[in-house]
Each structure stands twice: as structure tokens, then as C-alpha cells.
Design a protein around this nucleic acid. Structure first.
Lengths: 316, 316
DNA sequence: CTGGAGAGTGGCCCAAATGACATAATTAGT
DNA sequence: ACTAATTATGTCATTTGGGCCACTCTCCAG
């Protein structure tokens, strides 16, 4: 079978991780044969230096990029800096030709500048979605997904969501089984469900988000020392138990107890790290009924005991 | 605050993803200030060409590597090829000096060759754990974790587990809060609990794994068309319901129903992709009670309907 | 005006998940 | 060999998660 040609646009000051995500997913052979012909193409002239300091050398340029069936813009160095005109022109040509154009992370900015997203839905890194929406009002930003598939234009949320997006492309081309096999090789969940929201919960809480649910969660996170039940929280949010769980799952991607537990664990971690309080006292402040209970949850989640954790942190 | 010096060993034919994982985690500033001084150091002379084709240029070498407080070997090109002697010597020196040495993925082979893992526990990519255990009998391989912390020597499981491992290092140095902030920026779960087993479930099933649990899971995966309850599966595994759930969680990292659901969804995906059967028929074969139920689960998990999924796959 | 589709909500209820605790089995230490 | 300690397993009770259905509200087309 002929390999599918994938071109990845490289630019100066690119973060190596962004560059390497499509390399890893598309470059991973599923079984004996490789599936894609991956080429890193310089989108700018001159020496390309990665954000981590090393230089990136490639013989391919925009000419090569335009030959590909899948073109990936794996981010962009600065949300404020306009993308170079030649790259935009190439993307437009390749898009007209019917190729699949993928913008990972800030790569969505480049696609938007090229006009490929006009009137379409898109997403980008959560830290930039608002700024993006202001700058490109003609694009409908969906901050609540890991990637957006619009047929021949795809955009992904921040950094690691690019993995999910590229896996999705593989799934479209070769099916879920091949994509899953690659995911297993990379030791990555085959399909992360839910939005990027679950990974940015904290800042969302910090901001005075609207909605009875966000408010309730914020309140709960600030009052971890007391016991909370699903019902008490639902009551505080002025919802039925049923609706509360539904919204909760929709919003955070997990269940109430799991979220509560992870909040408690995170607080306990912080107290263990930053204070000298006794385990017993910390267990109390983090809302575990007893030190025994905390110990148990610690060992399940982190595979250590609280005291070991503290010692390890101090020592390291 | 003085930056913590991190050195990453680069070699010819390195996979860019492996190289970039420590770059991404340690190079990510948490807040305004960067925390680490990250340098990519050539572990071999001559031009370094990445697995994806582009070349990697750096001025730093092993001399620079030995100055670091944290040294990362982000994999190795081939499990069968011995690592170069100068690199091994450098690692030994830096380890004696008390620096932290981290071996990601196949990097564990390099650490083992350098003798840093003798008498210790370690892990590596699941595809190589057996071979590793045979080659280095003096190392206790733990295939069931994402990373192993042995004080000043760390090893991680395959590829993306390197992210978890590096985040763990950050946590040790600067605390859970800083690590969580970086994880959020990278849109990565702050702490994946459970083993790499959950990401490799399929091959485990395919092999005739021992143990009543694996057998039962394999059987269930082959008989998805019928309904299964927790009790029926527990009975088949000849365990009490409680023990069954406990072992299940231990082994797979999820709960029984979730696992069953994801199995059903995967089968449905495959059938939608590879057959022309009706949705109704597929729902039946995949063990969803009704097409309605399947539609529901599809929209929750993949954010589309079964027919949309099929159309999209055909079109792409 | 009306009937129907679709979204949001709450109630009911069962199965699943998990904590608490008891008991057996295994290991380690003396 | 005896006992303490740890670990595996079981029982019971409680809470949670979520499927299912009915109800309401809104919007839209006929």
C-alpha cells in the first residue's frame, strides 16, 4: 500500500514536543509496515533552533509540504506574532487541493490566519481560547474539547491533546484498531473522553465562574475539611441528585467522589510538603476521616505512605 | 533561585518524541520564571539524525552532561545494541557524584548497562520488559508501573510514561502544585494512577495469560454479544464479587462496567468500519441492549452517532 | 392555534463500587 | 516451631452511578 504523505511544518523557536507529537503518532509503524511517510518541512528559511536550544536541520521546505496529503502545523511560537506569508499561501494551496490540514495547539492561529477556519468550529490551547476568539470572531471557538474535526481541517487543544488529534486522524485513515495499537505502543489512552476542562479544573475554580455547579465545586474545594456527600453538594447547587451528577460528569469528566478524593489528596500533598503538621492533623484538614483512611488512599493513588511521601519530597 | 541543571542525552536515530518529553516537562516555566536549565547533550560524535529524518544540532556533549544535577537518558535506539562506552562512563561518574539519573523507556537499558540498576527495581517499555529481565537478571523488573523511583535512579515505562516520570521529578523538586501546573499547561493528567497494564490490555488478552482474572476477561471480550453482570463474571472467575472487583481494579485500572463498555464500543467501532451491517445488528453483536443504547454511549464517548462515525470513516 | 420534536429536569430504582471489618493464609522473625 | 506481621479474601452495609421514564418548557412548522 502506498504510504500516506504527512508533512509537518517546522519553524524557528518551535517547542520540540509540539514538533514531535505528529512524528511519534504518524511515524509509529502499526505492525510490520509503516503507514505514513512523515517529513518535517521548514516553514521558514535560515537555521531553525528549537525552544530547547538544539537546531533542527531538514532538506524539505514548503515545496515538499505542498505535496503532502496531510499537513500538520504543530503550533506556533507566539500567539501574537503573525505567521509568515509563504506558509499561509502554501496552506491555502494545499487546502484548495483537498489535503487534510491539521493545526495543533497554537497551530490553530496559523490556520485561522490562512482563512481556513472561517465560519467553522475550532479549538486551541485553553490559555489562548479567549484571545483567539477575540482575534478571529469569524471562527467559532469550542474550548471544551480536545480536538475539532471539520472534515478536511482539524484543530486540537493544548500540547498533549495533539496526540489525541493525530490518533483521530489515524483512526479516520486506518480505523480504530490501528489507532489503538499505536496508542498502546505510545502508552497513551486510546481515546481520552471528555474535554480539556478536566485538566484545567483549578484555574476554572479560581476564577469566579458562573453557574451553580462551578460555584458549588469552588466552595467544596475550599471546605475540604468537612465531609461532603453527593446529596449535600447537590442540595447546595440547588439541583436534584440526578441532575447534579449529570452536570458534574459533563463538566469535569469524572464522578463526584473521585473528584473529591483527588482534591483531598492534592491538599494533603501540599500540606505534607509545606508544613510539619502531623499526619493525623493533615488527614483531618484534608477531610479524610482518619489517618488510616488517608494512608489507604495514598497508597492506592501514589503507591506510598504519607510519611514516605514527605520524606521523599524533603530528601529530593 | 538558581536553576536546576538538566541534561538530556541525545544520540543518532533518536525518536524525537522521546527527546522532547523531558524538554517539554522541564522546559515548561511554572509561572513567570523557568525552573530548570535544560540542555540537550550529544552522547555520540558526528551528526545526529532523528528517527523522523531531521538532524539535531547541539554544542553540548558529555562534558556538559556531567555538570548537570539531573541527567535524562530519554530512550535508546535499539534494545539489542549496546550503548557507547563513553556515555556509560559519564553516567557512572555523574551517578557517583550524586546526581539524579533518569532512564525513560529504553533508556533503562542504558542505565542497566552502566550498572546503575544492579540490585534495584526498574521498569521499561512493556514490549521489552521480558527481554530486559533476561538480559539483566540482576535488576528486578516491575512491568506494572509507569515509573520506578529508586532515590537517585529513576526509570519509566514506555514513551508517554516518560511524561509521568518527569512530572514526578518536578514534584520531588518543587512540589505537587508546581507539577500540577505544568501538567495543566501540557493538558496532561496530573497523576495517572495505575499501571501501564491498562494501556496494553489487548495484547495481554490475546496471549493466554495465566490467572483466572485474565482468562475471564479474555472470555468476556470474546462474548460481548451477551449480557454480563459483575456477579456472573465473578462467578466465572471463581471469586467473590468483592475480590473480583479488587483484582480487576488492580489489574486494569478501571471498573468492570467501564471496561466492558469500552470493549463494546471498540467492537462496535470495528464493525462499523469493516462491515455494512445495520446499526441495529451491530448494537446487538456488540452487546448493547438496543440501538438506542448504543447511540447514547457513542455520543457520550465519541461525541458522534454510530452512523456519523461510519460515514466519517468512509469519507476520510 | 396546535401538535410534535428536542432539550432539560427530577424521580425511581437497581446494580455497582467501595468502606469497614472479620477471617484465613502466607511470610518473616525469633 | 511458635508467634507476630503482613497480605489475600470474604461478608456486610452504605453510598454512588446511571438507565429509564415521565414531565415540562421552548421552539418551530404546518
Amino acid at each position: 500500500m502506498a504510504l500516506v504523505k504527512v508533512a509537518i511544518a517546522a519553524f524557528d523557536d518551535i517547542r520540540p514536543f509540539h514538533l514531535s507529537v505528529p512524528c511519534a503518532v504518524f511515524g509509529e509503524a502499526a505492525g510490520a509496515e509503516p503507514l505514513f511517510d512523515v517529513r518535517v518541512c521548514a516553514a521558514e528559511s535560515g537555521e531553525l533552533r528549537s525552544h530547547a536550544g538544539f537546531t533542527i536541520g531538514t532538506h524539505h521546505g514548503l515545496r515538499e509540504l505542498e505535496r503532502a496529503q496531510i499537513v500538520v502545523v504543530p503550533s506556533w511560537r507566539d500567539a501574537h506574532e503573525p505567521a509568515p506569508a509563504p506558509l499561509l499561501a502554501s496552506l491555502q494551496r494545499v487546502h484548495r487541493r483537498g489535503a487534510l490540514v491539521v493545526g495543533l495547539c497554537l497551530g490553530a492561529y496559523v490556520l485561522a490566519e490562512a482563512g481556513l477556519l472561517d465560519g467553522r468550529r475550532a479549538t486551541t490551547h485553553w490559555r489562548w481560547t479567549e484571545q483567539f476568539a477575540q482575534r478571529f470572531p469569524q471562527v467559532q471557538v469550542d474550548p471544551g474539547v480536545l480536538y475539532v474535526d471539520q472534515g478536511n481541517v482539524l484543530t486540537s487543544a493544548g500540547t498533549a491533546a495533539g496526540i489525541d488529534c493525530c490518533l483521530h486522524v489515524v483512526r479516520r485513515e486506518f480505523g480504530a484498531e490501528v489507532a489503538n495499537r499505536i496508542a498502546r505502543t505510545l502508552v497513551v489512552p486510546p481515546h481520552r473522553q471528555g474535554s480539556q476542562a478536566q485538566y484545567i479544573e483549578q484555574p476554572v475554580l479560581a476564577a469566579t465562574s458562573e453557574g451553580p455547579l462551578s460555584k458549588t465545586l469552588g466552595w467544596a474545594a475550599r471546605h475540604l475539611d468537612t465531609a461532603h456527600s453527593l446529596d449535600s453538594l447537590a442540595a447546595r447547587a440547588a439541583m436534584s441528585r440526578r441532575s447534579f451528577t449529570r452536570h458534574f460528569r459533563q463538566h469535569t469528566g469524572t464522578t463526584v467522589t473521585q473528584w473529591l478524593l483527588s482534591q483531598r489528596l492534592m491538599l494533603a500533598q501540599r500540606l505534607l510538603e509545606t508544613t510539619a503538621q502531623s499526619i493525623e492533623r493533615i488527614a483531618e484538614r484534608a477531610g479524610f476521616g482518619s489517618a488510616l483512611s488517608m494512608r489507604h488512599h495514598f497508597s492506592v493513588a501514589f503507591n506510598t505512605t504519607p510519611s514516605m511521601y514527605r520524606r521523599e519530597f524533603r530528601g529530593g
